[in-house]
Every structure is written in structure tokens, then in C-alpha cells.
Amino acid sequence: RQGFVPAAYVKKLDSGTGKELVLALYDYQEKSPREVTMKKGDILTLLNSTNKDWWKVEVN
């Protein structure tokens, strides 16, 4: 499932696989259909980080 999360809630990881991955630093509950819920410690695939406030991710 793809959607947006606050950029301040995730940290980029060095995956070494060519995929950009991020680590969820905090729990986040989606507040609109365009967002996704994540739990602290989740590893997500980063799809787009051009917006400084909201990053598009895919929940694996």
C-alpha cells in the first residue's frame, strides 16, 4: 500500500540494495486516504521525497 507520511517521522536508511528505505521513528495513524499508518520500527520503501514535509512511501 502506498501513501504519504510526515518526513519528520522517518529516517533514510542505507540499504545497499538500490531501493531507498526509511525507518519509522514514531507511530503514525493515517488521517486521510492519501496517508498510510506505520508503527515505530517499520521499514518502508521510499518512493518520493521531493516534498520536504511529506514523503511518499510503500508499506511492505
Rank of each mutant, 00 (worst) to 15 (best):
D27I: 02
E30P: 15
D14F: 12
K39P: 00
P33A: 12
S49L: 04
P6H: 02
T17V: 14
P6C: 04
N60C: 11
K39C: 10
V22Y: 10
K11G: 06
L47G: 01
K40M: 08
W55T: 04
V36H: 04
N51C: 09
E35P: 04
V10H: 01
W55L: 04
K11Q: 13
D42I: 04
T45Q: 11
K19T: 12
A8S: 14
L13Q: 05
D27M: 03
A8Q: 13
S15A: 11
L44W: 03
Y26E: 11
N60K: 13
T17K: 11
K52N: 11
G3R: 02
L21E: 08
L25M: 09
T45E: 09
L23V: 15
E20G: 11
W54V: 02
A7F: 02
Y26N: 09
Q2T: 11
K11I: 15
K12P: 08
K39M: 09
N48S: 12
N60G: 14
T37C: 07
A8E: 10
K19H: 12
G18E: 13
M38W: 02
T17M: 13
K56V: 14
N51P: 05
D53E: 12
D14K: 13
D42S: 06
V57I: 07
K12E: 05
A24I: 03
Y9S: 09
L44V: 05
L13V: 11
L13Y: 10
V59Y: 10
V36I: 14
P33W: 10
E30C: 11
M38F: 09
S49Q: 10
V59L: 12
F4D: 04
E35F: 06
F4Y: 15
V59E: 09
N60Q: 14
F4Q: 03
R34I: 12
K39I: 07
V10P: 00
Y28S: 01
S32M: 07
P33M: 08
D27R: 03
Y9W: 07
G41L: 03
E30H: 10
R34P: 05
W55M: 04
T45G: 08
I43A: 03
G41M: 03
T50S: 15
K11V: 15
I43D: 00
P33R: 06
E20L: 13
T17Q: 15
V22A: 10
K52S: 12
G16L: 14
V59A: 13
W54E: 04
M38S: 00
W55C: 02
E30R: 13
L21A: 06
W54L: 03
K19S: 10
K11D: 05
T45C: 09
T50M: 11
D14N: 14
K39E: 06
W54G: 01
R34Q: 12
E58Y: 05
T17R: 07
L21I: 09
D27H: 05
A8W: 09
K31I: 06
L21H: 08
T17H: 14
Y28D: 00
V22C: 11
E20A: 15
W55H: 02
Y9N: 05
T50H: 10
D14G: 15
Y28G: 00
V5P: 01
L21V: 08
V36D: 00
T37Y: 04
F4A: 02
T37M: 05
T37N: 07
